[in-house]
Each structure stands twice: as structure tokens, then as C-alpha cells.
Design a protein around this nucleic acid. Structure first.
Length: 360
DNA sequence: AATGCAGTCAACCGCGCCGCG
DNA sequence: TCGCGGCGCGGTTGACTGCAT
């Protein structure tokens, strides 16, 4: 038994809106508002449209101050940064771009931005790879292993990562990322990009603040359910979020693959980076895009990178919360990792604690 | 000029969430 | 507590357009 249709499909017009329909809808809403009931609205106006269709038309096209096309470089950056961080949460991304709709951003991403990034990445790959990655990396790991002073709370692997000059950022692998876990294979290789020390203290800290604002204490299950509207001005950007209460665990339980690490947590269910890497919860496509970002840092897009820095937890361990971001550990959603280690299957050597249970 | 193809984007669809009775 | 209905979201579709052949 399916859900009852929201309207009488037989007597509802579909397809493109006529100027007359637009005018009717716009005039009515501007005068009376939506009345809090989209389903009933078309009947009131005398439109043979589904209420959902009216809502969409208003939100995406008729509502005041809507911008279409002409995305700026800065908007590109914000979209890309947020996509890397939170995935295809278009409504959340749209909330940070005044005048933009989720539909617009989604289309823009799918039709242009993604291709633009992937195109650049493939071009780079054709340009050549650093042949000595593997050898150099192995040597460095061996050296680091010898040199490192052990910590009871930091895994060997994480220390290697923290100490390695070959670090580069890879987005964190949400345990409930809505894609099946995939470990990057040898068919996809990342040239190693040197970190730019400017990143850590760039003026793009505003983006980080934005993400904090968006994320709040996502790991806090005692969050309220009240929707709030907040806004703040950081540097040049004014951000507002009207859809998320500050403590909503938006990643919680979206996916049954909530992992409980054994022996590799820092505190409060935070999975260590090594555990996350073991799960490899990201798609090749995302990996490609992320790699593309890394590459583009040297092409003037390093402003993306303000948020792509490693976390500095007190234990020196990069980590991620099981349920999403830990606000006080902002930055922990993203981790540093020599990606070559992933594809070379080196993690097994350094992550003896790589055992986990599926909690659900 | 006709046809095919790829890109773009408005609109639709299905489903999860949430409030309410 | 449960079921229903509306809202909002993300994924997908299909019409349209421009370009290449």
C-alpha cells in the first residue's frame, strides 16, 4: 500500500509554468502569503497545479531576490568546500548563498562545477605523476616509525601522519556517508601535494566558522529539535542558517553503518583517523574531486583549503565523531593523510587496532 | 538544411521527517 | 502511541537549446 497522492494527478497540470500562472501565484503569495498550506493554495488561487509544484515554483523562481546563473568564483569556492565537507546537502549549501536555491546549486554542481573540477584533475593526471611517491613515502614512514615517541592515546599511524612532511588532506570519511564504502584502488593515484603552511592561518577561517555554525555539536544526542535562525558576520561573509538548530546531529542514523572502533577512539565515540581510513567510506568520484581540490590549491583555489586542515586535538590525534562533527574539534571532519598509503595498502601495517563493530 | 548529440535547467517524483489529532 | 498529512529535500527526468557533423 503506497502513500496517498498529495493531489488529484488527473486534474493537475504539469510541465512548464505559463506567465499567467506565475503572475497568479506571485500576486497571491505577495498579498496573502502561503497560508501555511501549499496543498490548499492552488485551489484558492484557481490554479490547476499541485501544491508541491506551486511551492517549488515560488521557492525556485518567483520569490524575491532570487539570482539565476552567474555564479562567482567565491560562490564556487563555497559550494565546493561545503560539498566536500557535507556532501549533497543542497539546502544547507544554499542557505549560505543568499539568493541561490538548492535546485540551482544542485544543477550548477552537476552540470558544471563537478565537470570543471574533474576536468582539471584529469588534465593534471595526464600531465604526469610523481614516480617516486611510493619509495619516498615508505622511507619516510620507516624513519618516522623509528623516531616517534609513543603516546598511549595516539596510534602509530596517526603519529606518522602528524609527523610526515608528505601530509596532504583528504576529506574525512563519515561513517554514515551515504555511499557504500570504497577504498581507493590502484587505478586512481594521487600525486602528493605539499601542504601550504598559509592554509592553517588563512583568512578563510570564516568558512570554518561557517561550518562550525552549520554543524554545531552534531555528536550531541541531547540536541533540541527547535528550529532556530542564526546569523553572524565573519570577515566578508555573512552567513545565516535557518534550517538547522545548532545542535542537530544531522548525520546521525542516516545510515546503519555506524562504526564503533575498538581501541582507536579518543573520547566520546570519536573514531580515529586510522579507523576512518580503514573503512574507506568515500567514493572514487568524491576522492577524485577531493584530489582535484588538492591540486587546485596551487592554482589559486587554495581558499577552499581553509577548512581542509587537520584537527589538532589535545591528544594530537586526528579524529571524527561517530555521529558527525564535533564542534569543539572543528576541523576534525577533515584529516591529513598521505593518500598513497591508502592505495598502497599500508594501513594494515600501522593500524593494528583496525577492528570495529557495526553498532547497528 | 537536416540530423544527432551533449549540455543545461525547470520541474517532477518519491521518501523521510515532523507536527498534529 | 499511532496514523495521517504536509513540508522539505535530494535524485531524476525530460524539454529545450546550441553546436557539430
Amino acid at each position: 500500500m503506497g502513500r496517498a497522492p498529495c493531489c488529484d494527478k488527473a486534474n493537475v497540470k504539469k510541465g512548464p509554468w505559463s506567465p499567467e500562472e506565475d503572475a497568479k501565484l506571485k500576486a497571491f503569495i505577495e498579498q496573502h502569503g502561503t497560508g501555511g498550506n501549499w496543498i490548499a493554495l492552488p485551489q484558492k488561487i484557481g490554479l490547476k497545479r499541485c501544491g508541491k509544484s506551486c511551492r517549488l515554483r515560488w521557492l525556485n523562481y518567483l520569490r524575491p531576490n532570487i539570482k539565476h546563473g552567474g555564479f562567482s568564483e567565491e560562490e564556487d569556492n563555497i559550494i565546493c568546500s561545503l560539498y566536500i565537507s557535507i556532501g549533497s546537502r543542497w539546502s544547507i549549501i544554499a542557505a549560505q548563498l543568499p539568493g541561490r536555491t538548492d535546485n540551482d546549486i544542485k544543477n550548477y554542481w552537476n552540470t558544471r562545477l563537478k565537470k570543471k573540477l574533474l576536468g582539471k584533475q584529469r588534465k593534471e593526471q595526464q600531465g604526469g605523476r610523481r614516480a617516486s611517491n611510493t619509495t619516498t613515502l615508505k622511507q619516510e614512514i620507516n624513519t618516522t616509525k623509528k623516531d616517534q615517541t609513543t603516546s598511549t592515546t595516539t596510534s602509530a599511524y596517526d603519529q606518522i601522519i602528524n609527523n610526515s612532511s608528505l601530509n596532504r588532506s583528504v576529506p574525512l570519511l563519515y561513517t554514515n556517508w551515504p555511499h557504500p564504502p570504497l577504498i581507493p584502488t590502484s587505478s586512481f593515484s594521487y600525486p602528493i601535494i605539499q601542504d601550504d603552511p598559509r592554509d592553517l592561518h588563512s583568512d578563510h577561517a570564516s568558512l570554518r566558522k561557517l561550518l562550525v555554525k552549520l554543524g554545531g555539536r552534531f555528536s550531541d544526542n541531547t540536541s533540541t529539535t527547535t528550529t532556530t535562525t542564526t546569523s553572524s558576520t565573519t570577515n566578508d561573509h555573512q552567513f545565516s542558517t535557518t534550517t538547522l538548530p545548532p545542535q542537530v546531529p544531522i548525520y546521525e542514523n542516516n545510515n546503519p553503518i555506524d562504526l564503533v572502533p575498538l581501541g582507536s577512539t579518543d573520547h566520546n565515540n570519536n573514531i580515529t583517523m586510522s579507523t576512518m581510513l580503514q573503512t574507506g567510506c568515500f567514493t572514487n568520484e568524491l576522492a577524485e574531486i577531493v584530489y582535484s581540490f588538492n591540486t587546485q590549491r596551487s592554482e589559486g583555489l587554495d581558499c577552499f583549503y581553509g577548512i581542509l586542515e587537520s584537527s589538532g586535538t589535545s591528544s594530537g590525534e586526528s579524529c571524527c565523531n561517530v555521529n558527525g562533527w564535533g564542534a569543539e574539534n572543528m576541523g576534525s571532519d577533515l584529516i591529513n593523510c598521505p593518500s598513497a598509503m591508502i592505495e598502497q595498502g599500508m594501513l594494515q601495517d600501522y593500524v593494528p587496532e583496525s577492528r570495529y563493530l557495526a553498532s547497528q
